[in-house]
Write a protein that binds this DNA or RNA. Structure first.
Lengths: 237, 237
DNA sequence: ACCTGAACACCGTTCAAGT
DNA sequence: ACCTGAACACCGTTCAAGT
């Protein structure tokens, strides 16, 4: 059952890098549940226990795999104008999570961890050149990150859902559109009203519109010398 | 080991509702890994198999638990002015996920599912009264939802992380602040520059600032008759 | 120092058997 | 119709034993 490739691979001794690369392959192929210590040790032609010599536990492994892919994605992005670069980063992450859907959830669990930090840094550097006031930079970057990861994760989840139901994109959207148009008219007027639009929308375009929405908000905020005071925050707490 | 309460509970026969309520309690207490069919059947004084008579599988159970909490949260929000209501919905969801961190991940996996739909509908109705052009409503609501859930999830994950390290909020932020200020100056200039701000920030305020950023963007967009054409989308694809 | 693989304590889920 | 609980096929992780 062992292919030439497997044997060759094992010629190199086991290393943290080997393990991470094999993990990424398993995750890409079988999703989060595709990564098990048994599958991993089989692919690496070793025992499950051996892996624990190089990595602490499964969570450590997931973060490391995540970090490797994020670092690669970030290195592929070339800087141009700040807004353009932000869009490129956004789209790069969107497509990364589309190809590696498991990254979405792996990335949540670590604000201080190194993959999330890479993204924060990259966006932050652009926001600085956009001349956003210093006190607002952190919030603005946080807003962009939350939005980018939120949409990308949702997009990946939808694709996953479609695949589970053995539908292509068009069929899946058709199903959702039909389901929404059949909702109760009193309780779900909005969902019904947009049901028709679902069919022909483009995920990337929607995503970039959202990014532009936020960039527009940033620009508008830049020209307000004093940050606006909102009473709702304290009133609603 | 059985308390009076447990016994009393079992007097009512098993039902889907019973099971969902018990699941929520387990999830709140022990997080996602706190919900197991063994713990659940013990709490309900029955066997693991009995549960399968009322629910399809664990995923079904999670969605149902999620839906129950989301429905409750949404019912608590009273409508006022559209912007105010959107902030109230946002903050309501933020606090909901803070109290029930497991909802964050449960909510991702289901764009068409009923908990996500409730949220979409509620926000959508407000966006309609804001007179956003019909073709942009879907995208705008999607933007808000992605942002709200993205930030809330991140916030819940941070709290979880702090708890795992047995730190209170202040200690945790202090740790992050110190870690960021020690990063490499060439590679992480932005993270270093905001390290100091981490210490004294308020999560809710940041969150509402982000919401306002998006609402500002929406307002600006409303006054453009023709939706702006972005070349980056096709250029970057 | 690094690897092996059996063993442990868990999972979700099924299903023959009961009432 | 609804419940029981043993059994199945998995998990992540540990650890004595090897090289």
């Amino acid at each position: 059952m062992k292919t030439r490739w497997d044997m060759q691979r094992r010629d190199e001794s086991l290393s943290r890098e080997n393990i991470i690369e094999a993990s990424i392959a398993l995750l890409d192929y079988g999703g989060e549940e595709g990564l098990t210590f048994r599958a991993l040790s089989e692919r690496l032609a070793t025992g499950p226990g051996a892996i624990y010599w190089h990595i602490a536990n499964k969570s450590d492994l997931l973060t490391a795999a995540c970090d490797a892919v994020v670092a690669r994605t970030m290195n592929e992005i070339v800087d141009t104008m700040p807004e353009g670069t932000i869009r490129a980063i956004a789209l790069g992450l969107f497509e990364m999570i589309e190809v590696h859907p498991w990254i979405g959830s792996a990335l949540t669990s670590a604000h201080g961890s190194s993959p999330a930090l890479r993204i924060l840094e990259r966006i932050g550097q652009q926001i600085r050149t956009l001349l956003v006031p210093k006190e607002q930079q952190r919030t603005v970057v946080g807003t962009l990150m939350a939005f980018i990861l939120g949409v990308s994760r949702q997009n990946a989840a939808n694709r996953q859902l479609a695949r589970e139901q053995n539908l292509d994109r068009a069929e899946f959207l058709e199903e959702v559109s039909i389901a929404w148009s059949k909702l109760d008219a009193k309780e779900y007027p909005f969902a019904r009203s947009v049901a028709g639009q679902i069919r022909n929308h483009d995920d990337r375009t929607d995503f970039l519109t959202g990014i532009d929405l936020i960039l527009t908000g940033i620009e508008a905020m830049r020209f307000r010398s004093v940050p606006q005071v909102r009473h709702s925050a304290s009133r609603l707490r």
